[in-house]
Design a binder for these strands. Structure first.
Lengths: 345, 345
DNA sequence: GTGAAAGCGCTAACAG
DNA sequence: CTGTTAGCGCTTTCAC
């Protein structure tokens, strides 16, 4: 990359407008306390020179960056192709933009990247971090902790040890699952199966808990482990049909696995919902509305979660990691879910 | 957001190691020209204090940022849910990471955001920009031009006026389309229709051109405008069936619209590929492999495109916008496509 | 090879 | 209200 063209400095603008650098600085930062003849002279000079403040210099003294990092761990490659993140990112982006704050996306693909991320966060680039902690054993939270940057987590973090406090935003996974299964029971279904998500993620674990809340004494063979993918859903569904051919309903941990399950059910000649009722989770429109039949599912407002994360961080509810040990106890915001009825259950 | 915890400075490390700031700086930046007793003393001090260089201060003097902006315009909301971007981003991210460079994602949702992006790019945050110019009339390229930052475009930019030169990476959209249609012809199909993409994007226009290359004298009613979405594909397919019930093949501008077309064909009792052969574009696995029947399609290596964009920028082939007017002529890299045969054609 | 000193572009007291 | 003066934390000549 070649050098960037030299840009005019405050000094240059000051000279051109015939004022001091301080005055230009004031005008550029809102113009408070500068009288009229000057303010427009300065504005004119800024315009003519195409002056844009150098953020590095500004941050050096203000210690503000007007930027927030979004950290996404991507151990499996599938993660980013998931519309889930796209939606959450959009929510975040919108909220940040409204606050004139930049979004810096940090993707990590493995442990090698952790150090880089830690350096970045500690190196004075951002005012805070939004972190998606995907897996229970993820070392990332610890690193971010060390960087001493205010942080909000997306989804309930996995470390239940209480050693850290954490601000996070999550959906009511357990409650949503409960509602789905209760709905199936209300439909008169008795042999209700569950296809789990990747159980090293809290969302999957919480949905399984919700299933168990309602089906306390369920046949353990009615629970098959999936991984949030259509392929995983297919695998799990085949397993279930083999183990319990008499099942009459399936609650899948997300819409993607539900779509896989639907495919297998069709393959086996089971009618949905007549023979087997199916409920998903997420209400990911491009999936849930396009399946055959359209999917009954538990909706979570993913974009709103993103927006909320950003809002919490910006409002200063972001947890200063350095103090985390002191406070103890987590401060989570849990968003409600709603059951969306379509044709599959 | 609360203040970030105070971090140790070079000064502190120097004091602790009993050397000057200059020496610490040298060690931190590779340790060239510092003798052994000192270098390890400094390393130790760095370690103990948890020192991380302040990038703002560093950039202020070096004028390097070790960061690259990725600018994505998102006029329609659908854009980001598209796996296309996810893949391209991953390619970019991987390449940048390999060069110890940060990825800063800038999402723009409308003209209001343009100024913000311009300021960001000009404000000294990044060494260059990767820009996805989605629409022909997008004002973004101009703005980025003004920021005077090296830039590589994703996809051939729409301004064909030759006023700007531009470095870009694109797929061989026209050639790929040609290959698809030629394949259909080879299959003995004679009434071949085309569902276009959003024609204000060069990729859609180029694919249409490729279609015409082979079907020079095609019945104009065999061309229906789509918009790269499944819904658009459905609409276009209905239109085509109404206008030309005798069609025996469809080339859709992407897999998503092909999936919509398949749905409509099934609805109308047309067998694929027996009655109507269908070919898509992209080879977006989650779509192309899951359709019924699996989709024959033109593959482009999207992730590689992203990687290549980053590589070009990093290698200094990035176009210094300030000089763009001088050079004239565009420097584009066009990646080959390959036809992937599945069941639909 | 190492340290001293200057200065990157900006903001924030502090005078006037 | 406006200008003057110090730095923010770092790299980089330039002497030693």
């Amino acid at each position: 990359m070649r050098e960037t063209a030299p840009r005019p400095t405050l000094e240059a603008v000051a000279a051109r407008a015939g004022v001091s650098r301080a005055t230009v600085s004031r005008v550029v930062n809102g113009g408070e306390g500068v009288r009229e003849p000057l303010v427009s002279r300065v504005r004119k000079a800024v315009e003519e020179l195409g002056y844009v403040p150098n953020q590095a210099a500004r941050s050096l003294v203000t210690r503000r960056y007007d930027a927030v990092a979004v950290v996404i761990a991507e151990p499996e490659t599938r993660v980013f192709a998931d519309p889930f993140f796209a939606l959450q990112l959009r929510g975040i982006s919108r909220e940040l933009t409204a606050h004139d704050t930049q979004l810096v996306l940090l993707l990590t693909e493995g442990r090698e990247d952790h150090a880089r991320v830690g350096r970045y966060l500690a190196g004075g680039h951002v005012d805070g971090a939004l972190v998606f902690s995907l897996h229970l054993d993820d070392p990332l939270p610890g690193l971010i902790h060390g960087a001493g940057v205010p942080t909000v987590f997306g989804g309930r973090p996995g470390w239940a040890d209480g050693a850290h406090s954490a601000v996070y935003v999550d959906s009511d996974n357990r409650g949503g699952a409960r509602e789905a299964v209760t709905h199936l029971v209300g439909l008169g279904r008795r042999r209700i199966a569950h296809i789990t998500g990747a159980l090293d993620q809290t969302s999957a674990a919480d949905r399984l808990d919700g299933f168990r809340d309602v089906m306390a004494d369920a046949d353990p063979r009615l629970i098959a482990e999936g991984d949030f993918t259509p392929a995983g859903g297919e695998r799990a569904m085949r397993q279930l049909l083999r183990r319990c051919p008499d099942l009459d309903a399936v609650f899948a941990a997300n819409d993607l696995s539900a779509s896989g399950a639907l495919r297998v059910l069709r393959e086996h000649g089971r009618r949905v919902p007549e023979d087997v009722a199916v409920i998903g989770f997420d209400d990911m429109l491009p999936v849930a509305e396009q399946t055959d039949p359209p999917l009954t599912t538990v909706r979570q407002d993913i974009e709103e979660m993103g927006r909320l994360m950003a809002r919490l961080l910006l409002r200063g509810r972001g947890d200063r990691a350095a103090e985390a040990g002191v406070a103890g106890g987590s401060a989570g915001v849990v968003l409600p879910t709603t059951l969306v009825r379509r044709a599959s259950a």
